[in-house]
Design a protein around this nucleic acid. Structure first.
Length: 334
DNA sequence: TTAGGGTTAG
């Protein structure tokens, strides 16, 4: 058991069979950091950050914790960083990292701290960790740039991206996504197009998520034709790509049937709609006075089981309210 | 060998 135990624990935990993984862990005679880390990773991937922290608390005395345990612990805190408990725990881990010299020992600890603070909305601390890091790798820059973007410091995200380039680092898909997202928020199409060009040169436009961000950039700056051009050139598309284009068509003021046509194409291509799809779709349909289409979409919402959702309920209410069907409004409410 | 960056809507 001790030989295979760690691999089994990690394997089951990552597959989402956490209870099973935990049982094996408890039966192990020689528990180690790898098995404990495996347990935590499984929970973090399921967005169960608080439980991962609990596992750390309960098992830290049983095993020889390694540096990676702290990095995983930081990502667990980042999962619930917007809650008081997550913020408190994150700061506590930082304090511990400073006392034990961990934050200087490994780049990944610094990277984890930047990410954790950025997710807490504490961008000042994220910046100061980044500034104090002696060694920075690509992930350090990516974490900083995405943190700035997520905290709405769009201009600084662009500046940071340029600094990274000046330092001779070649941007990866992650940095490109964050900086393109900032360009879109700034409404800065020139910078966006320039970055798009860089992405093509680096071959990063082949990444689905990079292309998705380009779709959003062109959609948000009112360039539907550019958006559709990028979409048509995409070799690979995912649910986000389709949702973004549906949203772009809906926002462009095109006819309802055009947005519905993209939606049908999405379905024909074998993709299932999700809550974002329906929110985008209902936004267009709400301008209609005829209710047949609304009923059809409502049926699909029930079929795909996304009905227990406030945003969807509100969008449906808006549609039925406008079409004057108050009985259906009541049905959604009660 | 376990970890640390990401895109759609609101």
């Amino acid at each position: 058991m001790s030989m295979w135990g760690s691999a089994l624990v990690g394997g089951f935990s990552r597959l989402g069979s956490f209870d099973h993984a935990r049982k094996i862990f408890e039966q192990m005679t020689a528990r180690n950091a790898v098995s404990m880390n495996g347990l935590m990773v499984g929970l973090v991937r399921q967005k169960r950050g608080e439980e991962a922290v609990e596992v750390f608390k309960e098992t830290r005395h049983l095993v020889d914790i390694n540096i990676d345990s702290y990095v995983i612990l930081l990502s667990a805190c980042a999962e619930f960083a917007l809650l008081d408990g997550g913020r408190r725990k994150g700061r506590e881990v930082h304090g511990h990292a400073i006392r034990t010299g961990l934050n200087d020992a490994k780049v990944s600890v610094g990277n984890g701290l930047i990410n954790m603070y950025a997710k807490c909305g504490d961008i000042d601390h994220a910046r100061s960790v980044f500034g104090l890091m002696v060694d920075k790798d690509l992930v350090s820059w990516n974490s900083m740039i995405s943190g700035l973007d997520q905290n709405k410091c769009f201009e600084d995200a662009v500046k940071s991206y340029n600094s990274m380039r000046k330092s001779g680092l070649i941007p990866s898909n992650f940095a490109l996504i964050s900086v393109l997202s900032s360009c879109a928020s700034l409404g800065c199409i020139l910078l966006g197009q320039q970055t798009h060009g860089e992405g093509i040169k680096l071959g990063l436009d082949l990444d689905v998520s990079v292309s998705n961000t380009l779709l959003a950039l062109y959609a948000e700056t009112g360039r539907l034709a550019e958006c559709q051009k990028v979409f048509s050139w995409m070799l690979e598309r995912d649910q986000v790509s389709w949702n973004t284009v549906i949203g772009a068509v809906a926002d462009s003021g095109a006819s309802v049937s055009e947005a519905v046509e993209v939606f049908l194409e999405m379905m024909r291509a074998g993709w299932s709609p999700n809550r974002v799809t329906f929110i985008n779709l209902l936004a267009t349909v709400s301008s209609l006075s005829t209710s047949k289409l609304i009923h059809q979409i409502h049926a699909l919402i029930l079929k795909y089981n996304v009905k227990d959702d406030n945003a969807i309920e509100n969008a449906l209410l808006a549609c039925y309210g406008k079409s004057g069907e108050m009985e259906n409004c009541e049905e959604i409410f009660f």
